[in-house]
Design a protein around this nucleic acid. Structure first.
Lengths: 256, 256
DNA sequence: GTAGACCATCCCGTCGCGTGAGGGTCAAGG
DNA sequence: CCTTGACCCTCACGCGACGGGATGGTCTAC
């Protein structure tokens, strides 16, 4: 306003900070690194921000909201035409809004699932956060186990299991583990009739919960339990040597 | 899955990182500070994340998105029931969405104003960022200058000025400054007829752009130009001593 | 003239990782 | 059997964006 300028312009740090919802320290910092240097100083040395400074601050804050680094912000603002800067900030903010929307939706369905007792896969839980890789993981699993009908069926069936279902399955499995371990402790061998009965129970368990487990498949699975360290470690959690014993029992059952 | 567990569970750091769109280092960090400790380690020492870990990570990421510190996140998750945690995260995310919406709307109107050449006040530019203080600033100004009819009128009129309007005003004012400075340089006194003419032009300028500037008001304004350091500094930017000279000229004009 | 609210400049501290350095693990292929 | 490449591990230093205190000047306000 020139003749009336000090009425409207000439903001001190504190005032700018309050208006913008930031701290004085932040303005000092922006001055230090040259991101927002106040256009003037009063005779007492106080920083004096004018309207153009505020305009720049507006742009800075818009970009900051997106998590850009201060140097990136500086480049973004200084490089291009100022209306372009705002429009770009606009676009980025809208992207951000989309992301938050996805996350909110994800939490929604997580809460829903939790209420209904439904189970969610890890991929479902994290899909809103990763930038996007719809298949990548499923592919990884398929490369190893998949393409086979048993794998596919298992995926289909387990996808609708609730958390309670999983609990019940785990209880059943744990019970079976204990019975195997009891045999081991009692010194009853893997070739015994008792072991053969438990093997049948094991096959039935897998068929009921995952896929049609034929004797052939079961034999293959049993071999893996002992040889593949991933299965082995996992099974041995229930008791040391269980993987070996289970594998031997299965092998004995189908040996004839 | 117990017997099939290694097919689905047992994620390595890299896999979790890819799924969640974060870096391995971040997972290491969360492990270091105890925010997310993998539920197990493989025999080779590799971190092994299971489904419950992923669930926790989901909650962590949701909170992180809001800019909470990691210790706050830990407290939020550990303190309360887990479904409550998710619901709370939900609420915070929605707040965040609101804020971003406000900022986007603000940028919208800024861009619109820019296109139409309209002028925006600093308060308008920053209102979306500050937590909220609708009046605070206006109050500050009013405490000093306001309540007076001249101030109110000035606010009313200038609020509709475009940036071009401001440019034209500044040009006029700058021109007037130069003419005053020319008198000073020529050694023509503040009591001269030439100065009196310029004083009238100055009063007319203020009346045309801001408010009905009566001789009384003008005299008061002139006194302030010299005495109030804020006015003085601002006016002296155009030329050292201008505030003093202008003030003296105005005083002389109305002395009779 | 002194109290309280601002302002200034230094400068060390913190948080959330980034980024090597230095080294083991593990299928896959020559 | 050895290598290559893609993983994994543990230090440990560094950095960006401020926070926050120390120390001291400035400015209305009673």
């Amino acid at each position: 306003m020139v003749y009336l300028e000090c009425m409207t312009t000439a903001f001190t740090v504190g005032r700018v900070a309050r208006l913008a919802g930031i701290t004085v320290r932040t303005l000092h910092h922006y001055d230090d690194i040259g991101l927002l240097t106040p256009s003037g100083r009063a005779t007492n040395g106080y920083r004096s921000y004018d309207e153009t400074d505020i305009e720049r601050l507006q742009q800075i804050l818009a970009y900051r909201e997106l998590g850009l680094g201060l140097d990136e912000i500086a480049r973004a603002i200084d490089a291009t035409n100022d209306i372009e800067v705002l429009a770009e900030a606009q676009r980025r903010i809208r992207e951000r809004l989309d992301r938050l929307d996805r996350i909110a939706a994800n939490l929604d369905s997580t809460i829903e699932a939790r209420k209904k007792g439904l189970h969610m896969t890890p991929e479902q839980r994290l899909e809103a956060f990763g930038d996007f890789d719809p298949e990548e993981f499923a592919d990884e699993a398929k490369d190893r186990w998949g393409g086979t009908p048993t794998y596919d069926e298992s995926v289909r069936r387990t996808s609708s299991y609730t958390t309670d279902d999983w609990k019940r399955y785990r209880a059943e499995a744990s019970n079976l583990d204990d019975r195997f371990l009891a045999l081991m402790d009692a010194g009853i061998g893997a070739e015994s009739d008792e072991a053969a009965q438990l093997v049948d129970a094991h096959r039935s368990l897998i068929t009921r919960w995952f896929y049609e487990c034929t004797p052939d498949i079961h034999a293959g699975l049993g071999a893996m339990y002992a040889s593949d360290p991933r299965f082995r470690e996992n099974i041995d959690k229930a008791g040391a040597g269980l993987a070996e014993f289970l594998s031997a029992s299965i092998a004995a059952r189908y040996r004839d």
